[in-house]
Design a protein around this nucleic acid. Structure first.
Lengths: 350, 350
DNA sequence: CTGAAAGCGCTTACAG
DNA sequence: CTGAAAGCGCTTACAG
């Protein structure tokens, strides 16, 4: 088993050409190379199972096409999962390679990661420390932060997506006649960031309607026994609409309502987020906000990455691109609707 | 803004030493270097924000410490998410860098990924194509396949984990007096692989008990309206126990039972998988199998990776390691219990 | 159209 | 204890 590492020279030998030619063919710079030669090289490479050394090519070329995406545990949801898939697929389609880390910059230092792999851009779903931010600047690695401050959510930010989700919940309830809303969150501290954004979205929607009020936030401690801790005490009187942080929290609210004899949706309308399947098996079936990752926000993220990299979007050559990624990203979202793939799935609970 | 790429030479200049010394200090081979010099180098590196070039160091050293984990969309669950986190954290603790890909080897070719980053080992949650397998062999990259054939699930395999989950479900129901089980799956084709493994586990448990029968599999088409398609027709008579593929499917069964006036758990016991929070809000609250990623199977995976790499487990120097990773992995699982962190959370439904 | 050569930034024997 | 030098495998001007 002569299992020696095969390199460009071996391919060149087998094809009867020089290393230069091999490199040209393999990197699609073969304009000036006769088709016959090209094929010989390609065949040789295939036969030998040649894959160029990532390290050498990166070193020589001065960079690679890796997009490093920083995520961490937030709350598992199909929507979140699909979003990662959609982003990954979208980047691959543009010739970029998408790699996720679930610890770098969070439980493990970012610099450690960077000495193993140096991406051409970093996309982070959570806020990066100032030190890390400085380091990236030093290293000339662009950073796309998706989870910016809730105060001024940029067009692409994860914060903005969350904001819109809350907004959509509230708008729906108000449209159904609710006048006194409340926001209910779970006790999972890991979701704090997200629920803040969503709450702001709810608040904004409420502010836009004259005679609608928002009675603040209520916490459900879902871990404690029957899981209604906080609801009995916390639920303000007169509330007729609940925006739940997600479908799980909504399920808790529904169970609580059932127990207390509160009629849903007659006395109280409840809307969740995620549109998980179990929602349709609740009593009453749960109305929820679905996020369609494939056609919405993930496209905006891919567009933003491309813009930062100074590359044109996939599938077209020249385009006046640069500062106005916002416009393009918005266009990319769900057939120009700019809704980031957010939609309400109406069932009986609201 | 003199933002020139800082390299080892710059650090050496600032510290007043040679590149060699810098390299020694930064790679912890500084046995022979005086502490004062060491500090000077460290300070200089910090001040300049120096991070060694990943490409150069990999090229020169002939390898890196990257573990590439191949996953893809299966079914989002907190358990799966936590498992990835636990594996990632476990590997980092051993000095390895964990990177996930959600497309390589699946929607995008593995070779493309490999020409961007060459890991020292690949861990795959799904079966790798024969071509890719050959390629990895060629490239001398060890492959740890977690989703092996259901026929002979190895001790570490994802298949085996799934097998045990099904087994645990059935054992619990049998222990509660069930004599006629049925397995209920959703219509999500993506989960086919997993549910096959789990079903085999159920079958094995049933086979171990003399007077217990298994009435096969029933499909719920959760997408269709009320979501009971298949249950009305498919549910065999006389069944007194349901092993549901997951909590969502279990929720469908519970809803169906409520509608048909089947008493749970009196006439029918139902157990799910994942122990999702919403289960406690169902009526009756759902009994489920929880998978404790932190202390169970993920440790076994980390141990297996280390073994393949020929490295000793973290935290100890010499240990007679090699072929018997099975033993070690099993030991690592949940306080030596070898249960991979699988446990039944009993509620009223079973 | 093809080849010889430089050089990317590092690590690591090897001399001093 | 420290430095000069080789070389990892590739890509890319540059000559032929």
């Amino acid at each position: 088993m002569a299992n020696k590492r095969v390199k460009a020279q071996d391919v060149a030998n087998l094809a009867g050409v020089s290393r230069t030619t091999v490199s040209f063919v393999l990197n699609n710079r073969s304009d000036s190379i006769p088709e016959a030669t090209r094929q010989r090289v390609l065949d040789a490479a295939r036969k030998l199972g040649y894959v160029p050394s990532a390290a050498a090519r990166t070193l020589r070329a001065g960079g690679n096409n890796i997009v490093l995406v920083l995520t961490r545990y937030v709350v598992a949801s199909e929507a979140g999962d699909e979003m990662h898939n959609a982003i990954s697929a979208g980047l691959e389609r543009c010739g970029l390679t998408c790699l996720l880390s679930r610890s770098a910059g969070d439980t493990s230092p970012l610099s450690r990661m960077l000495s193993e792999v140096r991406p051409c851009i970093i996309v982070s779903f959570f806020p990066i420390s100032d030190d890390d931010r400085r380091m990236l600047e030093q290293l000339d690695i662009p950073l796309l932060e998706l989870g910016e401050g809730a105060s001024s959510p940029s067009e692409f930010s994860y914060a903005n997506l969350q904001h819109r989700i809350g907004f959509a919940q509230a708008e729906y309830l108000i449209g159904r006649g609710c006048r006194d809303l409340v926001y209910v969150v779970g006790d999972d501290s890991l979701i704090e960031g997200i629920h803040e954004y969503r709450y702001q979205g709810v608040a904004e929607a409420v502010a836009r309607h004259a005679r609608v009020g928002l009675a603040g936030r209520v916490n459900v401690d879902a871990d404690s026994g029957e899981g209604f801790l906080g609801l009995d005490e916390g639920m303000p009187d007169g509330v007729d609409g609940v925006c739940a942080f997600n479908d799980t929290v909504a399920a808790a609210v529904l169970a609580w309502a059932g127990r207390r004899g509160v009629d849903v949706p007659g006395d109280l309308r409840v809307i969740g987020v995620d549109n998980l399947r179990f929602g349709m098996f609740l009593d009453p079936p749960l109305t929820s906000v679905a996020i369609d990752a494939d056609e919405g926000w993930s496209d905006a993220v891919v567009a933003a990455v491309l813009d930062r990299l100074g590359r044109a979007p996939a599938g077209d050559g020249a385009e006046g691109s640069s500062a106005d990624a916002a416009g393009r990203a918005d266009d990319a979202a769900g057939g120009g609707s700019g809704d980031f793939g957010i939609r309400v799935v109406a069932r009986r609970s609201a």
